[in-house]
C-alpha cells in the first residue's frame, strides 16, 4: 500500500487539499503543500518553537506533529494573525518594541503569545515567560519580546 495520503488541512479557516507521506510533519506540509511559508522549521526536534502553530487554539510544535493527524483540526499559522494589511497588535508591538532581529523565531513567538493572551488576557511577567518558554530566540535576549507581549495585553485590555 502506498504511504501517500490525500488529506485536507484547514489553515486559517481555509481548506487546503494536500497529498503527504504518512511521515510528513505538519510544518513541511504547511510550507510545501499550502504555500504558507510563515511557519519556520528550526531544530526539527520540538525544542526551539520556530514551527509553533495553533491546533484548535493550542500551541503545538508542527515540526514534530504528523500532518495526517492534523486533519479535522483548525490550524492557525502566523499568516492568520493579520487582518489584511492591518497587523495584529502582537505583530505591531513586537516590531515597535524591537522584539524582531533576524526574525526566524518571530512566527513561533507570535503564535505562542497569541495562545497565551487568548487564554489569559492579563498575564503576569512570569506567566508570559512560561507561555513563551518553548520558544528560543538567539538575537534579542527576550526582554523586548516580553515587553511587546505585555504592551499587547495592556492594549487589548
Amino acid at each position: 500500500m502506498s504511504d501517500k495520503h490525500a488529506i485536507q488541512l484547514t489553515v486559517n479557516g481555509v481548506p487546503y487539499d494536500v497529498t503527504v507521506d504518512q511521515s510528513q510533519n505538519l510544518s513541511g506540509a504547511l510550507r510545501n503543500g499550502t504555500g504558507l511559508t510563515g511557519t519556520k522549521e528550526g531544530c526539527d526536534d520540538c525544542e526551539c518553537g520556530a514551527c509553533m502553530v495553533l491546533l484548535d487554539g493550542s500551541p503545538v510544535n508542527s515540526c514534530s506533529y504528523l500532518a495526517v493527524q492534523a486533519q479535522g483540526r483548525d490550524i492557525t499559522t502566523v499568516e492568520g494573525l493579520a487582518d489584511g494589511d492591518d497587523l495584529h497588535p502582537l505583530q505591531r508591538n513586537i516590531l515597535e518594541h524591537g522584539g524582531v532581529q533576524c526574525g526566524f523565531c518571530t512566527p513561533g513567538m507570535l503564535m505562542s503569545a497569541r495562545a497565551l493572551l487568548d487564554r489569559n488576557p492579563n498575564p503576569s511577567n512570569e506567566e508570559i515567560r512560561i507561555g513563551l518558554s518553548g520558544n528560543l530566540c538567539r538575537c534579542t535576549g527576550y526582554a523586548r519580546i516580553l515587553e511587546a507581549v505585555e504592551a499587547t495585553a495592556v492594549e487589548l485590555g
Binding site: 520540538c46 509553533m52 500551541p59 503545538v60 510544535n61 497565551l116 507561555g131 518553548g134
Partner: peptide, 9 residues
C-alpha cells in the same frame, strides 16, 4: 514537562 506545546499534546 517540556513547554506549553509539549504539555498540550
Amino acid at each position: 514537562v517540556g513547554s506549553p506545546s509539549t504539555r498540550n499534546v
